[in-house]
Design a binder for these strands. Sequence first.
RNA 1: GGGAGUUUAGCUCAGCUGGUUCAGAGCAUCUGCCUUACAAGCAGAGGGUCACUGGUUCGAACCCAGUAAUUCCCA
Length: 870
Amino acid sequence: MEIPSKYSPNETEDRIYAMWLEKKVFKSLPNDKPAYTIVIPPPNVTGVLHMGHMLNNTIQDLLIRRARMRGFNACWVPGTDHASIATEAKVVQKLRKEGIKKSDLSRDAFMEHAWEWTHKHGGIILDQLKKLGASCDWDRTRFTMDPKYYESVIDCFIDLHKKGKIYRGERMINWDPAALTALSDEEVIHKEIQSKLYFLKYQIEGTNEFLTVATTRPETILGDTAVCVNPKDERYTHLHGKKVIVPLVNRAVPVIADEYVEIEFGTGCLKVTPAHDQNDFMLGEKYQLEVINMMNADGTISEAGGMYVGQERFAVRDQIAKDLDAAGLLAKTEEHLNKVGYSERTDVVIEPRLSLQWFVDMKDLSKPALENVMNDTIRFFPPKFKNSYRNWMENIKDWCISRQLWWGHRIPAFYAPDGSFEVAKNIEDAVAQFQAKGASWSAADLKQDDDVLDTWFSSWLWPISVFDGFYSKEELDYYYPTADLVTAPEIMFFWVARMIVAGYEYVGNFPFKNVYYTGIVRDKQGRKMSKSLGNSPDPIELMQQFGADGVRVGMLLSSPAGNDLPFDESLCEQGRNFANKIWNAFRLVKSWEEKIDASLEQPESSAIAVKWMNNRFEQVLAEMEDGYDKFRISEVLMQTYKLIWDDFCAWYLEMAKPSYGKGIDSKTYNDTLDIFQNLLKVLHPFMPFLTEEMWQHMDSWKSESEMICISNWPAAKTFDANIQKEFEEFEQLVTEVRNVRKKQNLPNKEALVVSFMKTANRNSSFDAAFTHLCNISELNEVSEKMNPSFSFMVNGVEYFIPYTASVDVEAEQAKMKEELAYLEGFLKSVEAKLSNERFVQNAPAAVLEGERKKQSDALSKIAAIKEQLG
RNA sequence: GGGAGUUUAGCUCAGCUGGUUCAGAGCAUCUGCCUUACAAGCAGAGGGUCACUGGUUCGAACCCAGUAAUUCCCA
């Protein structure tokens, strides 16, 4: 059979993936085997695959594939998130293009559009994951708005409300005046903005004196109800208890004193607008200040403002500055670098706003979640994230869960005309509950809350609800807790922490054992990859160019847990090259099939090669298992890479390769197949397509297991560190000989004679491999130095290769002198150490011994060079 | 403003208990090679004041303090 010299992933990957699906190898149902479960961080239902997903899902696939091969019942649950605000924004945008305004639609009509949009664009991302090779159990695909999932979210709300953990209250929230909804803190992006600091003059009541107050938002004076100074600020002590007149508005407000005010900032005086600033609200509650809400939901000035009514907030800011200036009440303005909150979705400036919202009281709920991360019941990788987790959980605030949107889980609260309400699963239950309390409202009287729940209020149940855990214990008991969660550190608070909270609250156990935090994928300039910057490559195109395996390797080559990944296409190129390298190793071994000569004995050089390679495999396997335990994925990949490229291809295959025109003995051939098979197994999680393709080409492998993805992971055996040590000497020897060849321009075809000085303890175990690999015609033991010749020392044994005519003797001697000088300097430093009494007294024996060995090695090398120089 | 990191070769990173795993890896670079699996390759080589300053120690990339640069999270 003809195998092309270049591996072409495009012809392979779809075929292999189709085979896996057809054989249902990713399917999982509870059985006798131990479960190993991962739930996917559900991407936005209408989203498309970006590089962050690629990284994330490659890691998950790797973990799940390895687990599957290690004999676990591996279950990777895929699914998507309804992404309330993002999806609704897209639907609104699409409708607008069609000339339809959301406000003209009924809720039901809008929902129809939203579902239509979801069905049209939903699931694209899941198909893209298949290209990547993701071995999810696709039959389990879940969506956070599936009927059963929906129900669990509503039941959770009702339950927490019953427990008194959910309440309704007036709070300062982040208001998006464009989307007309409250946002969670996490949906607000703080940007540094060059703005102005306005210095406003407040007349002190009953005097002609003025107090100057600095503010970035002069329009909010319409809502001022106090001015605050620091009690320690001596400049203003005389004003405590006095009143000042708000400029233009002419309202008299008290001067209050609170430590909150920073003496250094501005003039040290703070205007207090309780309705329009989080901290001012706090001051307002503390000092019982009047609350004037001077702004409408859309960001225009309200009736309560009294002036500029109906005008837009930023227009008023400019206007009021002019008017203040005209009235002589604007002392000055300064440039000021200010942090301003913007809406993640609409990119408008957030308005702090008082409003009635639903909250979850997190204080008690979060306790087990904090404790069990800190005590490593749930382990974070890398562990440094425990610090910020603790910081957040210890200062946790109540969670605002209502959103003024339609796309999502509608809050199950039913209001009576008198404003009283009941939380119930449906309107019938609500009527019954009202009646139980003696209120005889009928269904027609009641109105359900218009708002929906924060998306995270559904996704925090993900590890439970994907198994219908609220309604059936069967699957939950088997699959939960899951093994690993792979996600980005940015959503540690709004997702990871809350899943842990929900896990303890509803299952009484943690949702996952390990959390692996990936880094952020950045471009070469260190910028985060984003659609708006247009600096993100299209993952699908990348996979077409380099193959899914190449891209997987590229992503993992440089991404230790928690570290950002500076993405560069050259990494994928490296991955592709690696695939090709293995492919060609396969071609070589495959070609031996026809060269087997049963009459041949295994040559000694091959026997040692097999022995060493098997030993090497065990050694690296042990290192890899250790790396996996610590989630040091990129290190494991690099170990695998070097094991295959360097150890197997560069050394083993070269040693085992029959000489030109010769056949191969069947023992070496079979040993090589066994070695190759193990290598492919440990490589499979990284490069599933390539390894499966090769597996399918080799009948003897297929007879062990139909497919590599369900074959058995190699069991760890012991290894002999001595063999590796001997190999390293051999490696050095080969390199020295190659250098000599290079110096003389001697091609490998020409055989060489190598001599070595008779020594008692020279190890000869690799001699056969040495003569085979380096084309040595004679390897002689001599008792006298050979001159003139190249000489070098490997582990205390001196080797000689006679000069041929073309050697530049002068240059050789100059080089030797250089080395001599270096060795003498080295010796001096070692001897200085050894003559230091305190070192000799304090250093451990092993260190001392090492230093003495350095000394004796250096001495013998120096002697050898001196002799060579004559 | 509060908190958490990071700084080692041109790039991306290892370096675990202070000492032979101690200055390393991959990529990139340079020099030879179309050598009968692979030029997407082979063989070899060069490359670092371990951010800076001080301290502890017989001994510091590693521990301590300070400085600088930088990233992230929170307000």
